[in-house]
Design a protein around this nucleic acid. Structure first.
Lengths: 130, 130
DNA sequence: ATAAAAAATTCAAGTCATTTGCAAAAATAT
DNA sequence: ATATTTTTGCAAATGACTTGAATTTTTTAT
C-alpha cells in the first residue's frame, strides 16, 4: 500500500521513512530510522508521528522485542513471519511460520543456543463482544 | 525457590512481593504489585529493584504484553504456559502449550474473536558463542 | 495556476515508566 | 554484639515517547 492509497498526504519525511523500511530488513525503532534517513531530514517527533499514523493505516506493524523500544516493519500479510533475536548482538533473523512443528529444533539447527520465545495471544473475550 | 535459596537477604518488601506473586494469578507490573501489597509498605523504587533482582535469580520472569509496561510472574518451569489477553478489558488467561496444534482454533473455541499473537524468539547466535 | 482549507512539521515542553546516587536502615557474618 | 554487606528510601535523573501551538507544506477548490 502506498502513502496515497492509505489516504495520507505525501510528504518528504513520510516517503523517506517508508522507503527506508521497504529497503531494509529487520524492524527498526524510531531513532534508528531517524539516524538512517538523516537526522537533518526531519525532527524525531515527526518520525514518531509518521510511524503511529502508518501503523494506524496498516502500512507497517509494531514489534516488541522485550526491551523498552517499539520497532516497526513493513506490514506484508503475504510474508508473515516471526523474529529470532540474538540476546547478545541483537541481530534479527526472520523465522517462517513452519516453526509450529518443532520450534526449538529448527532454531538450534541454525546454530543458536539458549533459545527462548515470548508468545502472547491477543483477542477480544466473550464479555467484551457486546 | 525461596529468597534465601536465591542467595538474597530476606527483607519485608521482598517477602511481600514474592508472597503476592505466589498467591495471585496473572503477571503484574511494578505499580500493581506496589498497590496490592500497600504503597506504605515500601517505596516503588524498591519494587523495581526487587523485581530486577528476582528476575536475575530466576525467581520470576518478565512478560511483555505489547504496551509499555513490564509485567512479572512466578517462574515455574513445571507450569510453562502462554497468555491470552483481552484487547479490551486486559483480562489474562493462561494457555497451555498444547496450542501448537491449531492455535487460533483453540482460542476461538474459548469464545475469543480477533485473535492475534505476538511471537518472538530469543537466543544466542553462533557468532556470539565465543 | 492561485488562493483557501486541510494536514503535517517543527520545536519545546511535558509524560510516565523505570533507573540511579547516596545516605540511612536493616540483614548477615564474625 | 559489632562489623560488614546488602537493601531501602527519597529525590533527582533518564530516556522513549507524546503533545501543544505556531509555521510550513500539501491538498483541494476555483
Amino acid at each position: 500500500m502506498s502513502i496515497k492509497e492509505a489516504g495520507l498526504s505525501v510528504t518528504k519525511p513520510r516517503l523517506n521513512i517508508l522507503n527506508f523500511l521497504n529497503k531494509n530488513h529487520g524492524p527498526f525503532c524510531a531513532e534508528e530510522i531517524h539516524n538512517n534517513i538523516g537526522v537533518d531530514q526531519c525532527d524525531l517527533a515527526t518520525i514518531y508521528r509518521c510511524l503511529s499514523t502508518f501503523e494506524l493505516k496498516g502500512l507497517i506493524k509494531k514489534c516488541y522485542f522485550g526491551d523498552d523500544l517499539v520497532r516497526y516493519e513493513i506490514n506484508d500479510p503475504e510474508k508473515h513471519h516471526h523474529h529470532l533475536i540474538c540476546k547478545n548482538c541483537k541481530k534479527v533473523e526472520n523465522v517462517g511460520s513452519c516453526f509450529l512443528k518443532g520450534v526449538d529444533k529448527l532454531l538450534s539447527d541454525k546454530g543458536y543456543i539458549k533459545i527462548e520465545h515470548n508468545l502472547e495471544f491477543f483477542g477480544i473475550c466473550p464479555n467484551c463482544q457486546h
